[in-house]
Design a protein around this nucleic acid. Sequence first.
DNA 1: CTGAAAGCGCTAACAT
DNA 2: ATGTTAGCGCTTTCAG
Lengths: 350, 350
Amino acid sequence: MRQRETDKGGQMAREITIVDVADEAGVSYATVSRVINNKAHVSPEKRERVLRAMAQLGYVVNMQARSLAGGESRVVGLLVDYLSSSYMDEIIRGIDEALDAENYDLMLYTTHRRKTKESAYVTKLTRGLADGLLLILPRNAAAYLDTLRQRQFPHVIVDYLNNKQNVPSVSATNFRGAYDAMSFLLSLGHQRIGFITGTMELGSARDRLDGYHAALKDHGIPADPHLISEGNFMQPQGYQCAQELLSLSERPTAIFASNDMMAFGVMEAARERGLRLPEDLSIVGFDDIPQASYVHPALTTIRQPLEEMGRSAAHLLLKYIAHPNAEIERIELPTHLIIRESCQALSFTS
Amino acid sequence: MRQRETDKGGQMAREITIVDVADEAGVSYATVSRVINNKAHVSPEKRERVLRAMAQLGYVVNMQARSLAGGESRVVGLLVDYLSSSYMDEIIRGIDEALDAENYDLMLYTTHRRKTKESAYVTKLTRGLADGLLLILPRNAAAYLDTLRQRQFPHVIVDYLNNKQNVPSVSATNFRGAYDAMSFLLSLGHQRIGFITGTMELGSARDRLDGYHAALKDHGIPADPHLISEGNFMQPQGYQCAQELLSLSERPTAIFASNDMMAFGVMEAARERGLRLPEDLSIVGFDDIPQASYVHPALTTIRQPLEEMGRSAAHLLLKYIAHPNAEIERIELPTHLIIRESCQALSFTS
DNA sequence: CTGAAAGCGCTAACAT
DNA sequence: ATGTTAGCGCTTTCAG
C-alpha cells in the first residue's frame, strides 16, 4: 500500500519528505537533515537554499521517522491520573511554558482508566516518541517507577514526595505549609482546630497531616483524633468532613482543609448550618487556586507555587534528557501563607 | 550510534522487538506481525507460540515504527486550547471512555501558547502517530481546518458549530438551552433579565445569545442592550459583568450567565452587594458542571451532556477513521433545564 | 500458511 | 563541507 489509499479509494496527499526538500534545493538529503537539526558543517549558502525550499514546500518533520531513526523527538510526555480543576491547569501551564521556551512539545496522557495496565502503558510510552516523562501526582506510581528507572528513561514527578523512594521530583514544602497555616490559626487563639486530610496515599497529604500535628505539639496542644477527618481532595468530601467536624459536641472554631476545593466544601457546610464566616468559623485551605480569591469570604490559604513547580519540573526533566546520569534531585519549593478573609481571631464570647 | 549510548556512557536497555519474539517463538518475524495485528493465515499453533513468547519477553509494540510502516497507530489526538476546569474534564472523560472501549489511546495536546503556529502544529500532528484528531472548542480553528480537510485527516470538533463551515462536529443545543432557561425565568415573572455572554467568537456563545433574544422576542419583551454584558466564560469576568449589570439604574431581577463559572461570579457580586439569593436576584447558569450543585444556593442551570458529547465525538471520529469519506455529520445533543435553588418567582413587592 | 524482502522518513556514522 | 549508506522496528507485498 505504498500509496496509502483510504478505504474508499481517496488518496491521502503524499507527505513532503526531506527528499523532496533536497531535490528542490539541489542538495543531498543528508544536508537537509543537517539544516533541520541545526548541525554545523553546512555552508550558509546551502543552508539558505534548504530553508527556502522547506518553507516553499511547507515541509514538516515526521516525528515518527525521526524518533525511529534514533534522534530526539523533542517531545515530553505528561502523565496524569485525570484532569482536575485549576490545580493541574496551573502546573501544566508552567510545564508548557518552560518546554515551549526550549522548543519541546508536550503530550498529555490521562491514565485514570487503566489502573491495572499502567505499567505496560508507561512502557509503551517510553518506547514512544517522548524523550522524557513528567508525572503529576501519580497514584500507584510504584508500579511503573521501576520500569522508568530500568529503562533509564528521563522522568520527574511533580508533587509527590514519597520519602522511601529516590525519585527525581518537584514539590512544595507541604509540611512547612501546613505548619504555617496552623501557626496562624493558633496565633489567632484557636485551640480546637479541625483538620481535613487529603488522599492519604499521597506523600503531600501525609506531610500536611504531619505539619498539622507538629504545630499542635509545638504549641502544647494535645491532638484530638476526633478533630481529624479523612478527605480526598474533592469538594464534596470536604463538605462531608466538615459536617462531621461541625457536629462534634465540642465544635472546632477553625478548620484547616488540605486543599482549597475541600475548603470550599467546608464553607458550604458552614453556611448551611447558619454559621457566619469567619465570625463563627475560621477556615484555611491549601493550594491557592484562582478561585480561592473569588469566593466569599476570600479564602486564607497556603499558596503552592503551582506554575513554578511545573516550570521547575520541566527544567529538571530537560536536564535529565541532556544528562541521563545526572544526580537525582528532589526539589521542594516554598509555600506561602496568603491571608485573606476567612479567618478571624477567636473572640472571648464565642 | 547503533547502541544508543547515553551521554555518560550508560547503556539504554535494548528494546525487545518482534525479531526477538520471532526468535523466541521460532517463526519469522512477519508471522509475529500477523499475530500482533490479528491477521488471518496463522496456524493456531504458531499463534499460540508467538503469544507465549510475547508475554514472556514482555514485548510492547513500538508505535513509531508501526506508524512509519503505514499501519494504524490506534491513537487519536485531542487538541485543546488550554485545560479549563471541569468542563474539559467531563468531555474528556467521555472521549476517554469511548476510545478505551475500542482500544484506542488518547494523546492530548494543548495549544494555547502557539496561536500563530497552530496550523503548522496541526500539520505536524497529523503527520504524527495519530489516526484522527478531536478538537474541543478550538478558537481560531479556521486556520487548520483547511489543513485537516486537505489532508483528509479524520477529525471532529466538539462544542463548536460554526454554521458557515461544513465540519464534522458534536455540540449541544445551545440555542434551545438558552431559550429554555429564559422561558423558565420569564415564567417566574422576570422581565428585566440580564445576560452575560460567553466568548463571542465561539459558535456556542453566539447561539446562546440568540436563544436569549428569541425568548425575549417570543414573549413580547423588547431587548435592552444595557442588559447584555460581554463575558468570556471565566468566573472573574462573570463577576465583573454582574457588577455592571447590578449597577444599572433599573436593576435586573434575574441574570442568565452563559456558563456556570460566570454564574458563580454573579453570585459573588450579588453577595458582595448584600443581595439575598435567590430572593433579590435569580441566577441561571449553563453547563451544569459538578460544582453547580455544590454551591449555595445550588445553581439552576442548563445541563449540557458533556460526557455524552465526548463519547459521541469519539464514536464519530472512529467512524471517519474507518471510513474517511463518510458523510459529514453535525450532531447536536439535547440540553436540559436543571432546576435547583438559585431562582425564585418575582414577588410583587420587589 | 509462512518466510523473504522492500520500504516508511529520518539520523548518524562513514566516506569523500 | 557534503554525499552515501546503513539501519531504527514494523507492515505489507510477493513468492513460495
